[in-house]
Design a protein around this nucleic acid. Structure first.
Length: 852
RNA sequence: GGGGGCGUGGCGAAACUGGCAAACGCAGCGGACUUAAAAUCCGCCAUCUUCGGAUUUGUGGGUUCGAGUCCCACCGCCCCUACCA
């Protein structure tokens, strides 16, 4: 009797065995090559969802497979445990964020165990654990020492719902990444990590990341946003509009431009409403009221609206003028909302002829448009010929001319080629440089990383304000700065109002002093956790460089595309700084990156609690078992594509496991199969069947191995299904006639090949049906024998002019000379009267007769 | 506006460097077993067909002996990003 496949009992049994035998403990075996398989650690917001299941199943298969291939595998798991949801839950439940966080961690940990994930639980990293965040503070202090920490005042993104500032990367389309509230601009003094110091390297090293998806690299490159151009100095005229005799620093207004070649076409000048020196410009101007009103209106326009693009542009004249450094011309200074404060210098030279935005603005406010760059055959050339006076305003234009062209009305540069990277750009920069009024420069879109948050549940910034000594770092020996437990968040208490936390003494002079009460962005925690896993219990340092260097960089990182910029960029930055500190000897943290697709509902919509379309993993485990869930999620789509949930498909994989179960028992037992007729078969036929099964087994070993290497788990499972179909076919042979040795080896290999996908199931079959010792996970991966997988005879296609006309069966090693006559013979009718031009023979595939 | 990706049966998908399109599965249909159902097993399942074949990978063109795959144009969908000077 074949026992029933009882997924629930089997899974519980093997999870217990794995735990007791510490099956997934990292071996730290120096004789083996290492493989670090890492999935992005989760935020403990309630129980896991299908996205987690998919992410971690993919990682688990890679980890288990790597172990069977002889690697010393590091496959850890932890929690990104600081952050607002915990704090909000605590406020709502009149509780403490730690309570909520740790309860959710336990729930998730149990779910992970029920999924059978092969984590070394000994290495768990929990970001809100002082043992961990202590070293986050230590790293902060090292960054500070290296000049990579700055506290400064500037316009920042403020989320009114989360009541905290946000980093640029955490604002998408003008909304807060977490709560989707419209983000406001505020002028505040905040803490920054100077990630821009690494902008160039972060961009350049994308080239080293051959194992990353192209689109992720592209997104990072766009985010870093390097543009080459020039800084150009314009001089502010005095209030009466007279050009300054002596250029003074105070009256120098610098712009960044990628098009210095169009400088002769500058007919006005624009600063953003938030421009830092706008008040200085407005001193004594009669237009203060108008400018104030524009500023007011601009501040009201939400970032969301601003992000819509192509908005109607608004501006007012400041009453002031600046001098164009290339021709000494005076141009009016405007304030307009289409210039943003946080790119370039917050001021632009407006060239309506060569820039669409300036063009639209000029049309609206009736400002001059000076044609200075034209397409080769522009009719305007004729008009300009022999005219000494400058022609202004090209009324018949509908758009600016932004492409490459020929300069006109541009002094000695007239006739030169202009455009983004043209000779005119270099020539004009040279002139500006010689006059001391400009120079070549590179502008990045990347801003410094604003890391301070006005929230309790985060890693405290280790800094102290002393009346006498100023801003003082907390000494390393005083770390960690602990978050106080006794805080009543629901009563509105903050770190800033917690006297026991705020009041301290100055580490330098000993006088009473105040602590910094901002905490660090949670993304600082996730920027180095992967290093901590290599040495998770170290209480002398964040990690031992020797251990980190042995395991790192992560060989395979797996996570969602939503971190394409945020987490992945920050982690790259941290790694580079730690390298410069001598803590690690590599430049990039993640060698290979796999971004898995989303799990969507039947209608193709994202699952969310608010839509009520969430499929709970625990329900599915209860109904079909974790192994079926794992197999299903791998089978239904390649890992990087979105997966449409279909419970019928899951039931199908459950049926497949049942079928494997019966098949394996039938292979090694003496029971007849369902498809067997009972009649003896001829020995010739038997031999053929034996041969075919052996060949099929080897073909599938090769296919599954190759597919695992490419993460094509869906086709690997399809190949295993084909093997099972072939076995079913073989089982038509009566039990007494079967080749027992062949059956045993096929059964064994089938179980091994399936084990990374359905581990509990495979363990049970290996132990109970095959009588195996130990764990399947400790076995070696079967070797692929190409010779045994090859067929002796194959069927190839015969074509005329690429159209299939028939098929012939030939020996696998047949040469063209053998095949050609066969083919011609076969198609003699159709070739009659035709002239054979040539014959193309693709071994193992086809023979194509080109005839006319 | 800029960048990236995708388009194959009723559905999820396969087809590695151009070489038998639709493997594998879901749904469906027919049969066996059963008193019956479930489960299981066997078979059919792109479209049209005068049963010889013919047509088919969003549309139109091109390169090639041969194109789902490469090139050009267009249509449609998705994702990212954005008054970036």
């Amino acid at each position: 009797m074949i026992p029933e496949y009882d997924a629930k009992a089997i899974e519980a049994k093997w999870q217990k065995v794995w735990e007791e035998t510490e099956a997934f403990k990292v071996q730290e075996d120096e004789s083996k090559p290492t493989k670090y398989v890492l999935e992005m650690f989760p935020y403990p917001s309630g129980d896991i969802h299908m996205g987690h299941v998919r992410n971690y199943t993919i990682g688990d298969v890679i980890a288990r497979y790597s172990k069977m291939q002889g690697f010393d595998v590091l496959h850890p798991m932890g929690w990104d445990a600081f952050g607002l949801p915990a704090e909000n839950a605590a406020i709502k439940n009149n509780s403490h964020p730690a309570k909520w966080t740790y309860a959710n961690i336990e729930t998730q940990r149990e779910s992970f165990k029920r999924m059978g994930f092969s984590y070394d639980w000994d290495r768990t990293v929990v970001a809100c654990d002082p043992e961990y965040y202590r070293w986050g503070q230590w790293i902060f202090l090292q960054f500070w020492k290296r000049g990579l920490v700055e506290r400064r005042n500037s316009p920042v993104n403020w989320c009114p719902t989360c009541e905290t500032v946000l980093a640029n990367e955490q604002v998408t389309e003008g909304e807060c990444w977490r709560c989707h509230s419209a983000v406001e601009k505020r002028d505040l003094t905040q803490w920054y990590f100077k990630i821009t110091d690494y902008a160039q390297e972060l961009l350049d090293d994308l080239e080293k990341l051959g194992g990353w998806p192209e689109r992720v690299k592209q997104m990072q490159a766009n985010w870093i946003g390097r543009s080459e151009g020039a800084d150009v100095d314009f001089m502010l005229c005095d209030i009466d509009g007279n050009a300054p005799a002596e250029p003074s620093e105070l009256d120098t207004i610098t712009v960044f431009t990628t098009r210095p070649d169009t400088l002769f076409g500058c007919s006005f000048f624009v600063v953003s409403p938030e421009y830092e020196r706008l008040d200085y410009i407005m001193e004594g101007s009669p237009f203060v009221a108008e400018v104030e009103q524009l500023k007011e209106e601009a501040s009201k326009v939400s970032a969301v609206e601003r992000a819509q693009g192509n908005r109607e542009k608004h501006g007012v004249f400041t009453g002031r003028y600046v001098v164009n450094p290339i021709n000494g011309e005076k141009v009016p200074v405007w304030v307009a909302d289409y210039v943003v404060a946080d790119y370039g210098t917050g001021a632009v030279m407006a060239v309506p002829c060569g820039d669409q935005r300036d063009f639209e603005f000029a049309r609206k406010y009736d400002l001059p448009i000076i044609p200075i760059i034209l397409e080769k055959d522009d009719p305007l050339f004729e008009k300009l010929d022999g005219v000494s006076e400058r022609i202004v305003d090209t009324v018949d234009w509908e758009n600016a001319y932004e492409a490459e062209g020929i300069l006109v009305q541009s002094g000695k540069y007239t006739g030169m080629t202009g455009g983004k990277h043209s000779e005119a750009v270099d020539a004009i920069i040279e002139e500006l440089q010689s006059k001391g009024l400009g120079h070549k420069t590179i502008q990045f879109r990347l801003r410094d990383w604003l890391i301070s948050r006005q929230r309790y549940w985060g890693n405290p910034i280790p800094a102290i304000y002393c009346e006498h000594c100023g801003l003082v770092p907390v000494p390393e020996e005083d770390l960690p700065v602990l978050l106080p437990d006794d805080i009543d968040l629901s009563a509105g208490e903050l770190l800033a109002t917690h006297e026991g936390f705020v009041n301290t003494t100055c580490p330098i002079c000993g006088a009473p002093a105040k602590r910094e009460t901002d905490t660090m962005d949670t993304f600082t925690c996730s920027s180095w956790y992967y290093l901590r896993y290599t040495d998770p219990h170290n209480d002398q340092a964040p990690f031992d460089p020797k251990k980190a260097n042995r395991w790192m960089p992560v060989d395979q990182y797996i996570g969602g595309i939503e971190h394409a910029i945020l987490h992945l960029l920050y982690s790259r930055f941290f790694t580079k700084v730690l390298r410069d500190m001598g803590m690690v000897d590599f430049d990039e943290p993640f060698t290979n990156l796999l971004c898995q697709g989303m799990v969507k509902d039947e209608k193709g919509e994202t699952m969310s609690k608010s839509k009520g379309n969430v499929i709970a993993p625990e329900d599915m485990i209860a109904r079909y078992g974790a192994d079926a869930v794992r197999a299903y999620i791998l089978f239904m789509a390649p890992p990087d594509k979105d997966l449409i949930w279909d419970e019928g498909g899951l039931a199908g994989l459950y049926k497949f496991l049942n079928r494997v179960w019966r098949t394996v028992y039938q292979l090694v037992g003496s029971e007849p199969s369902e498809s067997q007729s009972g009649a003896e078969i001829a020995s010739e036929e038997l031999e053929k069947a034996n041969k075919a099964l052996l060949r099929e087994m080897h073909r599938v070993i090769g296919k599954v191995t190759a597919d695992f290497g490419r993460f094509n788990f869906n086709t690997a499972i399809a190949a295993l299904m084909e093997l099972v179909n072939s076995i079913s076919n073989y089982l038509k042979v009566p039990p007494a006639q079967r080749d027992a040795d062949l059956c045993a080896v096929v059964a064994r290999n089938l179980v091994i090949l399936l084990s990374p996908i359905a581990p509990h199931f495979s363990e049970e079959l290996y132990a109970e049906a095959l009588g195996g010792e130990g764990s399947v996970g400790d076995l070696e991966w079967p070797e692929f024998d190409k010779a045994l997988a090859a067929a002796d005879e194959i069927e190839i296609v015969v074509q005329i002019n690429g159209k299939i006309k028939g098929r012939v069966t030939i020996p696998a090693d047949a040469a063209q000379d053998d095949v050609e006559p066969l083919a011609k013979d076969m198609l003699a009718d159709q070739l009659a009267g035709k002239d054979i031009k040539k014959v193309i023979f693709v071994p193992g595939k086809l023979v194509n007769i080109v005839a006319k």
